[in-house]
Design a protein around this nucleic acid. Structure first.
Lengths: 160, 160
DNA sequence: TCCGTATGGTCAAGATACTTGACGATCTTC
DNA sequence: GAAGATCGTCAAGTATCTTGACCATACGGA
């Protein structure tokens, strides 16, 4: 199946994983650039990945750790950074003396709002590029993949 | 379009970027785990990203830098690591005294072979999960996105 | 031929993201 | 209460990527 690569068409990968990776990278780069251009200089892809797991009304830090597919220490360090930037704040959990609640500051909520706007812009440009139908099919397939997400893949490392 | 988040269904993102990111991460994690299980302990996602840009018959380091969307120094450091692991080797380019050619060692080619096998396994499991039709639509959409890749996104930083 | 400039690659230092290991504080269960 | 689990933190190390400076070679024209 791997046809003899020549100087021009060069046998670069063409499978789901590669395509997903490329598409994901392109999206992230575009989004992050737009966010920084919108004045959110603290924005990075790793931070975005974490924020994606924090609902607008906040969450418990421990709940966050379950969702994000990394160690609790990684989450904590990201949170430290975001807190230092004034995007989030951590409060003691009134219902659990050990726990902490994470929630957005006004600055964080502003960023979310801008993020929503940018997100829609990019989405529109994607639809322009590949057509509404293909775009819908893309979303449908991705959602199915996620729903059918068996187990074999990326569960949290759960640092003992 | 962003519906009011509630405690249960929790307003986690549901847009192209997020879905692509999640899907990509899941694929990478599964693939990397399988590669390491197959005995390629040196395998990492960053390295995979670079190897994806190196055709089986090798390439010039400079050509690699153009393709990979990072700085030449980042590419070099990845290459250093892969060379130290014995996956790749660098030779002087006979046609350009400044240049170097990058090519796979036997160990590297073995890894590529295993990678192809694993890749097909995962692809098959995806088809099982979401159906052949949806899978085809997914690939179609992703390819269209890539082809239509205007410009706004991730071109190489081209460290001056 | 020689000079100016561009290109290919390297070295070095620092920032970011993430990992593992150890630990203290609080909750839960019996 | 006392054992054990859970929540969060501190600390140290690794991997990846960035920026800046630098040398060697190639190329293009005067």
């Amino acid at each position: 199946m791997v046809k003899e690569p020549d100087e021009k068409t060069d046998g670069l990968p063409d499978h789901v994983g590669w395509r997903l990776w490329q598409a994901s990278r392109a999206w992230q780069a575009e989004f992050a650039a737009a966010m920084r251009a919108a004045g959110h200089a603290w924005f990075s892809e790793a931070r975005a990945g974490l924020l994606g797991h924090i609902p607008r009304n906040g969450t418990r830090q421990s709940a966050l750790i379950e969702r994000a597919a990394t160690s609790k220490q990684a989450v904590q360090q990201l949170l430290d950074g975001l807190e230092a930037e004034g995007v989030l704040e951590r409060l003691p959990d009134p219902r659990d003396g050990r726990g902490k609640l994470v929630r957005y500051t006004r600055k964080g909520l502003d960023a979310l709002r801008d993020g929503d706007r940018i997100k829609l812009q990019i989405e529109r440009s994607y639809i322009d590029r590949i057509g509404e139908q293909r775009f819908a099919a893309l979303m449908d397939a991705l959602r199915s993949l996620d729903a059918e997400q068996g187990d074999a893949s990326g569960e949290a490392p759960a640092s003992k």
